[in-house]
Design a protein around this nucleic acid. Sequence first.
DNA 1: CAATAAACGAGACGGTACGTCGAGTCTTCCT
DNA 2: AGGAAGACTCGACGTACCGTCTCGTTTATTG
Lengths: 215, 215, 215, 215
Amino acid sequence: MPPLATTAGTSRPRVEGQRESEILDATVRLLVDVGYDRLTLDAVAAEARASKATLYRRWKGKADLVVDAVHRAKACGGPLDVDTGSLRGDLMALACCTGGLVDEVPLSVFAGLMSAMHHDPELMAAVHTRFLAPRVELVTRVLERARERGEIGAEVDIRLLFAVLPAMVLHRRLVMGEPIDATFVARVVDEVLLPAAHFSGPFSPAPNPIPKRES
Amino acid sequence: MPPLATTAGTSRPRVEGQRESEILDATVRLLVDVGYDRLTLDAVAAEARASKATLYRRWKGKADLVVDAVHRAKACGGPLDVDTGSLRGDLMALACCTGGLVDEVPLSVFAGLMSAMHHDPELMAAVHTRFLAPRVELVTRVLERARERGEIGAEVDIRLLFAVLPAMVLHRRLVMGEPIDATFVARVVDEVLLPAAHFSGPFSPAPNPIPKRES
Amino acid sequence: MPPLATTAGTSRPRVEGQRESEILDATVRLLVDVGYDRLTLDAVAAEARASKATLYRRWKGKADLVVDAVHRAKACGGPLDVDTGSLRGDLMALACCTGGLVDEVPLSVFAGLMSAMHHDPELMAAVHTRFLAPRVELVTRVLERARERGEIGAEVDIRLLFAVLPAMVLHRRLVMGEPIDATFVARVVDEVLLPAAHFSGPFSPAPNPIPKRES
Amino acid sequence: MPPLATTAGTSRPRVEGQRESEILDATVRLLVDVGYDRLTLDAVAAEARASKATLYRRWKGKADLVVDAVHRAKACGGPLDVDTGSLRGDLMALACCTGGLVDEVPLSVFAGLMSAMHHDPELMAAVHTRFLAPRVELVTRVLERARERGEIGAEVDIRLLFAVLPAMVLHRRLVMGEPIDATFVARVVDEVLLPAAHFSGPFSPAPNPIPKRES
DNA sequence: CAATAAACGAGACGGTACGTCGAGTCTTCCT
DNA sequence: AGGAAGACTCGACGTACCGTCTCGTTTATTG
């Protein structure tokens, strides 16, 4: 359902942005080919017929460049909003679109970024601002609409709930090394997320066996 | 000159396991100090007063060594089994023990390993065999006992359920960059895992991806 | 409408010579501060508040600019001629004036130029034309006057003789790394140049004649 | 002391010098091909199948490496001493042998080194110690023998005299850009050096180094 | 006096070389 | 004979400078 906006939508007359985009494109191209770890800035420079100095003039380093590349190449192409009328439908739509959770490229890049994020606060901030924040906002909007429709219990913490799907996907893909497909997403939604969304309330203290450990 | 390495006296003779442990200890020491990415094998060799050749004789590379180090230093110290009588109690006990999900060290190391795991199948296998498998088995046992007690619905897929807690913890810590504590673990257990465990039944009306409401 | 070249055919938006001089002054300033090798055209551009394009519009490159800078800043201030009445007096006067052989700045710059001259014929031509030729001509005139006065033997090759003093000075300063002062110049003149000037004749076969004196 | 090694002549702990020599040879090879300025350490590394890290481990930089290379390749091959019976004969023999003043390679390299020497005291020290000192000593010996034979006046300063030939050669080659051959060397010896060598006495009327200025 | 075209400041760019660092291999010496 | 020590190759890193090439903006001449 792209509106066929060939020229109107992208009117960034900056000549600077042009070179930048070419470099970003080259980065994404190599990223898909060899992955984050095997990606070198020399290769990016060669692929984009750019100088390494140019890369380092605009980006702080490899990770910063890659964040930008993935952000522009994928996130921008993603949906700005989705509203299928049901929580389940919205989540599935979001997960399965380009740049969504079932898309291999962002996942793969993300794996490579994790190690760098861990000791580079600026990178983590960049990832959050440019990559995560838009997605979080989108999902949050979806969840809030679902709550208004009564699909989510009043006591359920959306901050917790929204993490369920990405967490399960990342775990399966990056920790367990198993592939992601729509079926898996659907199972997580149906068997974990939706139960949690409905069962907000008194679970741990009341129902059956009350555990004595907490600490 | 005693050619035979009897027992003690000179710490030179190879006890094999002893030298290995010293190296592993040195690795963990550095790991905690500088993290996985900043860790160099030269530093490990220097810290352990060992030769790099010795390291590469025993381990395949940096990641392999680190996996081993974390495995032996932490996981071995963990519990072989827990049985508090309730699913919630068991999960909390597992998560909060040394080497558990609230332990910073394994999490931190894990972040560094992800990137390497992604393009190194052998490393991924090693991580699974030595690091993940024991934990998975432990949790699986806990879940099966819980099912026998009736705390988990018959139709619930334990393979899916067992991932909920580690997935949520990793997501919060590595993706969102927020700290993990027992409170967070408890909330995930209470508000996500246990609801999913109880709600066995098909929640959405069907594999139909677009439901309306639920009853 | 092409402009008609009514006056001289060269449009001069700027004072030309003024801007040029400012740049050359900035060059000399930096030259004295950091030396030829550490001198960068970026620094010259910044110091003169000029653009690199302007520099390359007027000069072929770093070496060319520096030659010009030294030429204008120093050589122009030197004497146009000298005539003290004796060869010795003339040579000492030339050597000790500003821009002469005892002046540190031209020597220092010269050291830096040598490497570039070696593989850049145009640069060598520029150095010769703008820097060396005037000095050579001056010394040649001095030597010819001395010959007319009978201070130089008829058979002595002035082309060889004129090189003695600069050669010895450059050797001492650039090769041996020792400083130049008037005393050294005087010794070279008295103990090498003047003997050679008087002794034209056949020497190598027979080590006999000892010259007298001169006034 | 360790017992006798099985292989003979292993009192030299390592072959160490072997790798070094290979690198030095490669350096000289490239030096002759492209000259000092066009020489890059990457090219040396490639030519010698060595790592840049190895180069920088042993040498401080390009200039240091080149000094060493020229030293070993040329100076070592030069004569340890000459004694033809006459000063003229000795000087000509020294100048015309391999690595002597008429040899293009050392001259060419020297041109490139001058600029670096000028701002790098360590390099200058290295050049002096490894390149200049042996030659100076050799010429000094030659000159002292000549003095004993009466070929050099008692008052002549050998420290000044020894510089005449190299100074004139370097000046002609590097400053004037004209080629060096045996004829030129012979002329300098006959027409400058020998006259200066014979002429002992005070030539100029006074040792007063400062003549009168004129405009 | 306005139009115009050269010259300009600013600085991004491609390219090349630099000097450093870490991984993993290989050799030498010591005990 | 096995381990410590560490030199080695490889390759990526991030930096510096050169010389070229745009951009708009003066500035002086011209119409």
